[in-house]
Amino acid sequence: MSRAAVPRMLLRGWAIQVKDSSSFGFFIMSSLIEPVIFAAIAAYMFRAGNRPDALLYAAIGAGMLGVWIVTLIGSGQALTFLRHAGILELLIVAPVPFVLVLAPITLAAATVGMYSLAATLVWGWLLFDVPLGVEHPWLLLASVPATVIGLGMLGMLMASVFVLFRHANALTNMLGYPVWLASGFLVPVSLLPDWVRPVSWLLPTTWGAEAIRTSMIGGHPLPAIGACLGLAIGYFALAALTVRHFERLARQRASLALA
């Protein structure tokens, strides 16, 4: 495959996957309706303080929970879904390395997750007077894709690791809220116990939330954007290894298709 064809393949793969997920009821529910609850949590917890910035801070944090959960479910179960749909074998038998096939899939999950943040902010603004201001519009435009890329690459690692466990579903469910807390969505990372901090730094959710907050409320988004992209590279490298391992193992164990 020519070098120029790869970015095109990634981009179109992503677009098609986003289109596919967007017409799926589950995602619509969890991305557009559920955020009413996230917005309400943010509003009621922080209204007492009477600090508008805190309200927006909390709303972004609450919205990121939705982003994380959609990414987690979308990625963690991507391979299982593809296997059930009978598509996995066709993707494996394509001449493109499977990491490049999987990347747009988990990136799309993270993208669709972003609907959830947007919806939380809109619901917050409509129903709870959350003030929506954007301090650095251009950096916000960079923060959002950086967050998606960071989350998508972590998603790819999860996709290829979870699929090896029989109880991947339970694992997926378990990872929802702890990551939310560890990423400082509701409570700043600096207030968390010391041992949680290294975990927080390894989560693209932490830096994504930070980048979006500083872009909207004020501060310096660039370091957080950089951290997101740096983590993305790291997770991509790890995923490239685990995905190869998955493929080898699946060809051995005959687990690409339902028997």
Binding site: M1, A5, R8, I16, A85, G86, V96
Partner: peptide, 30 residues
Amino acid sequence: YVFGGDRGLYERLNALDNLRYFADLYAVEP
């Protein structure tokens, strides 16, 4: 590789999108 039966397609997409997606994966020149 083609197998029989009605699985193995992206149901919510149209045929054109299904084919475009696989054309990229099968490295068909843009």
